[in-house]
Design a protein around this nucleic acid. Structure first.
Length: 590
RNA sequence: GGGGGCGUGGUGUAGCGGUUAACACGUCGGCCUGUCAAGCCGAAGAUCGCGGGUUCGAUCCCCGUCGCUCCCGCCA
C-alpha cells in the first residue's frame, strides 16, 4: 500500500505516529516559508504542513504541487498549536508535519471547483462526471447509497430472503412501457428486450419454490425522462410466497423505518405509516401519491355550491359533476397576476376555469367575481367547512372528478411550494391501498389493468367481476413519500380460472396471452403458491434520503433528459459491419 | 410530440440597441513561516452556444437551430 492511514481517519490518538498518506490536493496555501496542503481522500481531509525548516526536499516538492495533484506524504501526526484547531474539520485537532512529499501524478486545472459545492452547469458536470464524483456531495450520496443497499441486503438476508440474479436480455412484451430492444445476431430479425422490471421472473421464482426472493435489479424503460425518471434505474425487486397483503406492508414498513434510521440524512416525519385507500387519497389530496408533509386538503363543497346562484356550479352538480375547494392560508391578498398564474395551472390540468374567494384580512369581507352568487349563510358555511380565516384564499374547481382532482392537486403542490411547506426536511411515508383493479377509462371497449394483469382482486370482490367490474378493488399497494411513488406491488393471481377471467375483461385473447406470457401461464399450471411482492425504487428513495431534488444526484453515471451520456457520448453510430452482422439497415428519416 | 426556463473568459454571475463586455473565484508570475474560502501586488484569459434576420450599429430585439433543465403527454 502506498498509504498507512486515510487522511480522514486521523484523530488526536494518532499524535506522535509517523504516517504515510496518499490522496488529492484539495487546497494548497503557500505562506512563503511554510506550505499547507489539505490532502483529501475518500475518508476526508487532513492538513499537511510542509515546513522549509523541517525538510528542504519535501518543501521543494510541495512548492510545485497544484490543486488535484495526487500526492503521497510521509510525516508525523502532531497536535495543532493552541488556537490553530479547525473545528470545521473532523481532523481539525491534528496536522501532519511532512518529512517527505512525493508527487504521484499531476493534474490539469479542473473545469470546475472540486473543493466547493457551488452550482455548476449540468452539461459540464456530466461531461466530466468523474470529477463531479470527486466532490463531497456526490461521494456522500454514493456512500449513502452503498449503506442503504447494504442495510437492505442484511435486513432481507436475516429474514430468509435470497438474492437471485435474473436476465438482462429477456423477452419483449408490448404491454406497459416502451422496451429497449437488443437485436439478436444469431437470430436475425429477432430482438431481446431489456427488462422493465423482473416481474415475470420473480413470479417464476415463486413457482420454483424459493419463497422469499429479492434482487437489487436494474430496470430499463424507453420513455421520456423526468427529475425522478431515468432510462435505466434500480429497484429493490422482491417477492414472497404464502403471504397476505399486510405481511408485505408490515415487512417493508419495518425495512424502511430501519433503513432511514440507519442511513438517511433526512429523518422520518412519523414511524407509523398511515394507510390511505385510493379513494381517500384522491378525495383528500387529488392524487394517489400525496405529499403528507402539509395539509391544504381538498374539500367537497358540492352541496353548498350546488344550491348557490352560480349557474356553472348548480348545473355541474345537477349533472353529477364535482365542486371542490382548497384553502390557501394567507393568500387572500394575491394579485390579479398571481391568481391568473394559478388559474393557468388549473387549465393545464383540463379545468375550464378556476373560481376564487378572497377573505379580506382586516374586514373579513369576502370578495371575488363569484361572491355575489352566494348568500351570506352559504359563505359562512363555506368558510367554516374550509376552516378559512381572514386573509385566506379559497380556490374552487368544478368539473368531472378527475379534472377537479388533477387541477386542485397541482394547485395544492404549487401552493405548498410557495408557502414554503415543502422546505421541511422530513420523510412522510404513507401506504395507498385498495386501488381499483381496472382503470376508470375504458380502452378500446375493454378494461385496462390499473397495475398489471397479474394483480389479484380483493377476495371479497371477486363476485363483482361478473356484475360490476369497475367497482372491483385490488390487492395492489403503493408506498408514497413526499409526493413520490417510491414502491408499488400487489398480491398476485395464482389461480388460472381467475387469471383467464381478468384477461378476458381486459380484452386479452388466449392467443395473445400464450404468445407473451405462455411460459408464466404454463408455470402456473405446476403448483403456483399464493404469492405477492413489491418493488421499491432505489433511486427515488436515495434522492429522498439524501435530500436531493433529482435522482441524477444519487446515480454515479446518469443520463441527460434527452437520454444521452455526455461523458461517453452515448448513444453513438455504429460501424456498417456491426449492422451487417445483425442484418439491420437504418431507414432514411421520413 | 407539446410548453416553460437557462446558455456571456475555466467556473459562478453582472450587463445592455452604441461600453475597452464588468465582478468574484480559479489559472499564471511575484511577495510572505501558522494558514484553513489565507492575504497583498501584477498578468493572461470571451469569436457573449450556433445560423439567419431587423437595424447605420445586435451579446442585447425577432426567427430558426443546438445543448442543459423543469413540466404536460408518456411511464402496465
Amino acid at each position: 500500500m502506498l498509504k498507512t492511514h486515510s487522511c480522514g481517519e486521523l484523530r488526536s490518538e494518532h499524535i506522535g505516529q509517523t504516517v504515510t498518506l496518499a490522496g488529492w490536493v484539495n487546497k494548497r496555501r503557500d505562506m512563503g516559508g511554510v506550505i499547507f496542503i489539505d490532502l483529501r481522500d475518500r475518508a476526508g481531509k487532513a492538513q499537511v504542513v510542509v515546513d522549509a525548516g523541517r525538510s528542504a526536499d519535501a518543501f521543494a516538492a510541495a512548492a510545485g504541487v497544484r490543486g488535484e495533484y495526487v500526492v503521497q506524504v510521509t510525516g508525523q501526526v502532531s497536535r495543532r498549536p493552541a488556537g490553530q484547531e479547525n473545528t470545521g474539520l473532523p481532523t481539525g485537532e491534528i496536522e501532519v508535519l511532512a518529512d517527505r512529499v512525493v508527487v504521484l501524478n499531476t493534474a490539469k486545472p479542473t473545469p470546475f471547483p472540486i473543493d466547493r459545492d457551488d452550482a455548476v452547469d449540468e452539461t459540464v458536470r456530466l461531461r466530466y462526471r468523474y470529477l463531479d464524483l470527486r466532490r463531497e456531495r456526490m461521494q456522500r450520496n454514493l456512500v449513502l447509497r452503498h449503506n442503504a443497499v447494504k442495510f437492505i441486503r442484511d435486513f432481507l438476508g436475516a429474514r430468509g430472503f435470497i438474492e437471485v440474479e435474473t436476465p438482462i436480455l429477456f423477452k419483449s412484451t408490448p404491454e406497459g412501457a416502451r422496451d429497449y430492444l437488443v437485436p439478436s445476431r444469431v437470430h436475425p430479425g429477432k430482438f431481446y428486450a431489456l427488462p422493465q422490471s423482473p416481474q415475470q421472473l420473480k413470479q417464476l421464482l415463486m413457482v420454483a419454490g424459493y419463497e422469499r426472493y429479492f434482487q437489487i435489479a436494474r430496470c430499463f424503460r424507453d420513455e421520456d425522462l423526468r427529475a425522478d425518471r431515468q432510462p435505466e434505474f434500480t429497484q429493490l425487486d422482491m417477492e414472497m410466497s404464502f403471504v397476505e397483503r399486510d405481511d408485505v406492508l408490515n415487512l417493508i414498513e419495518e425495512l424502511m423505518v430501519g433503513m432511514v434510521k440507519a442511513v438517511s440524512l433526512v429523518p422520518l416525519a412519523h414511524e407509523q405509516f398511515p394507510r390511505l385507500s385510493y379513494a381517500e387519497a384522491t378525495e383528500r389530496f387529488g392524487t394517489d401519491r400525496p405529499d403528507l408533509r402539509y395539509g391544504l386538503e381538498l374539500v367537497d363543497i358540492g352541496d353548498i355550491a350546488g344550491s348557490s346562484a352560480f349557474r356553472v356550479f348548480a348545473e355541474n352538480v345537477a349533472a353529477g359533476k364535482r365542486v371542490k375547494a382548497i384553502c390557501a392560508p394567507g393568500c387572500g391578498t394575491y394579485s390579479r397576476k398571481q391568481l391568473d398564474d394559478l388559474e393557468a395551472m388549473a387549465r393545464a390540468q383540463g379545468a375550464k376555469a378556476l373560481a376564487w374567494l378572497a377573505i379580506q384580512p382586516d374586514t373579513g369581507e369576502i370578495r371575488g367575481p363569484i361572491a355575489k352568487f352566494f348568500t351570506v349563510d352559504q359563505l359562512i358555511a363555506l368558510t367554516e367547512r374550509l376552516d378559512a380565516k381572514p386573509g385566506d384564499l379559497i380556490l374552487i374547481a368544478s368539473d368531472s372528478k378527475a379534472i377537479v382532482h388533477n387541477a386542485l392537486s397541482a394547485l395544492r403542490t404549487e401552493l405548498a411550494r410557495r408557502l414554503g411547506l415543502t422546505d421541511e426536511k422530513k420523510l412522510a411515508f404513507a401506504w395507498v391501498i385498495d386501488f381499483p383493479l381496472f382503470e376508470e377509462a375504458m380502452e378500446e371497449g375493454h378494461f385496462a389493468p390499473s397495475h398489471h394483469m397479474f394483480t389479484a382482486p380483493k377476495p371479497e370482490h371477486i363476485p363483482l367481476l361478473d356484475s360490476d367490474p369497475a367497482a372491483v378493488l385490488s390487492q395492489q399497494y403503493d408506498l408514497v413519500c413526499n409526493g413520490y411513488e417510491v414502491a408499488g406491488g400487489s398480491i398476485r393471481i395464482h389461480d388460472q380460472t381467475l387469471q383467464a377471467k381478468i384477461m378476458s375483461l381486459i380484452g386479452f385473447s388466449m392467443e395473445q396471452a400464450r404468445e407473451q406470457f405462455g411460459h408464466l401461464l404454463e408455470a402456473f399450471e405446476f403448483g403456483a403458491p399464493p404469492h405477492g411482492g413489491i418493488a421499491p425504487g432505489i433511486d427515488r428513495l436515495m434522492a429522498l434520503m439524501a435530500g436531493e431534488p433529482n435522482i441524477r444526484e444519487v446515480m454515479a453515471f446518469p443520463k441527460t433528459a434527452q437520454a444521452t451520456d455526455l461523458m461517453a457520448d452515448a448513444p453513438s453510430v455504429v460501424l456498417p459491419r456491426q449492422l451487417d452482422e445483425l442484418q439491420l439497415a437504418i431507414k432514411a428519416k421520413s
